[in-house]
């Protein structure tokens, strides 16, 4: 088997696994009961799915000049998914949309309720 064929198989596997993770993320977004649980499904399998798809793309393009470009895509996705999940999670918690019946411990509501600064302020 030539190197090209091996790379082809690897690329195909990466693309399939990545698409699978994206599908799992979507299933989680539909199935899980409350917003914060859904956010877990939305951030993690989504980021790893994108990383797999982009790896598969790099393996199938086989062009060294796009490697930095694709690494940048994954890094940006990781950095920004942290920001958006934190912002959305915080807004949802402050709006009281967390279902208490699903929580084992809630150490944030147990502590003082007066937030530092206004809603969403840095």
């Amino acid at each position: 088997m030539s190197v090209g064929a091996v790379l082809d198989v690897l690329a195909a596997a990466c693309l399939l696994v990545g698409a699978g993770f994206a599908l799992v993320a979507a299933v989680g977004v539909v199935r899980l009961p409350d917003l914060l649980s859904r956010m877990h499904a939305a951030t993690k399998p989504q980021v790893i799915g994108l990383a797999f798809v982009v790896t598969g793309l790099a393996l199938s393009l086989r062009d060294p000049s796009v490697l930095g470009f694709l690494a940048l895509v994954v890094l940006l996705q990781m950095a920004t998914s942290v920001i958006s999940s934190h912002m959305v999670g915080r807004a949802s918690f402050r709006a009281g949309q967390v279902r208490d019946d699903l929580l084992v411990v809630d150490e944030l509501s147990e502590s003082t309720q007066d937030w530092e600064g206004g809603r969403g302020a840095p």
């Binding site: 799992v24 899980l32 009961p33 649980s37 399998p45 980021v47 699903l102 084992v104 150490e107 509501s109």
Partner: peptide, 19 residues
């Protein structure tokens, strides 16, 4: 990612915590 995928795909309801 694997753990979260497992949680998504199983049938049992999920329990969370704020730590």
């Amino acid at each position: 990612s694997l753990e979260v995928s497992a949680v998504v795909l199983r049938r049992r309801p999920v329990r969370n915590a704020v730590v």
